[in-house]
Design a protein around this nucleic acid. Structure first.
Lengths: 110, 110
DNA sequence: ATCGTTCATCGGCGATAGACGATGAACGGG
DNA sequence: CCCGTTCATCGTCTATCGCCGATGAACGAT
């Protein structure tokens, strides 16, 4: 889901930078990284499972999961009274590619 | 960041996650991404140059540069009354590799 | 010696992040 | 029907971010 908008915004970063920054922000928290890793171990996880695994309040975990979902890194699917969370591998691969592209563009300058 | 809870506990976030998160945090700001891109165009840049290019106050740019330096993404070298900033390509490549490794470890789970 | 330039840092301000407990909705099981 | 479980959300609190203007240090030039 690469945003290819064209904004002539000289002030603070092109639209691309903003999109990349937003997704990286979701990744830039140790708890969320660990949650992602945990989600990868089982193909689907409920909130309670994560709460049991990490030493965080249920509301805190719920917020982290929400952030991951809103960033598109995790898919959400309600299941009875549970909430199933699963990694979106494509989105993760996309982020990895975005970072690689950014790094690459920074190296091409010389 | 939340240092209080996940201090030395293996249950919530390894040290690796924290290191990755810290470096990604430096990258997760559109202005800093743009500054990095700009630094890549010339092999060395002073603060004033960045200030002229972006619509940000000098103090703001200085702070962003400091964050990038502290994250290890940019090298700093004082030069007369100037301050030379240059991209650390190795560090950038390292981050890219870290993200790729994280994504990979998340995909290996299934 | 004085000025102009460059820069880092300080202090302040508004906004946001990140944590928590409490609450209520949704649902399953007794 | 009541109760326990799961979860999202709200409200609150503190800490940090991101921005700015102001200030002073360092340095070159006049």
């Amino acid at each position: 889901m690469a945003e290819s908008l064209m904004e002539t915004n000289a002030s603070c970063g092109g639209p691309d930078s903003r999109a990349v920054a937003a997704r990286l922000a979701a990744l830039s928290h140790p708890a969320r990284i660990e949650i992602l890793k945990h989600l990868s171990t089982s193909n689907s996880c409920c909130c309670r499972e994560v709460v049991d695994r990490f030493d965080l309040a249920q509301s805190t975990v719920s917020q982290h999961l929400k952030i991951l979902v809103e960033a598109g890194l995790v898919r959400f699917e309600p299941d009875r009274q549970r909430s199933r969370y699963a990694i979106d591998h494509a989105a993760l691969a996309d982020i990895s590619a975005s970072v690689a592209a950014l790094v690459n563009s920074c190296c091409s300058g010389r």
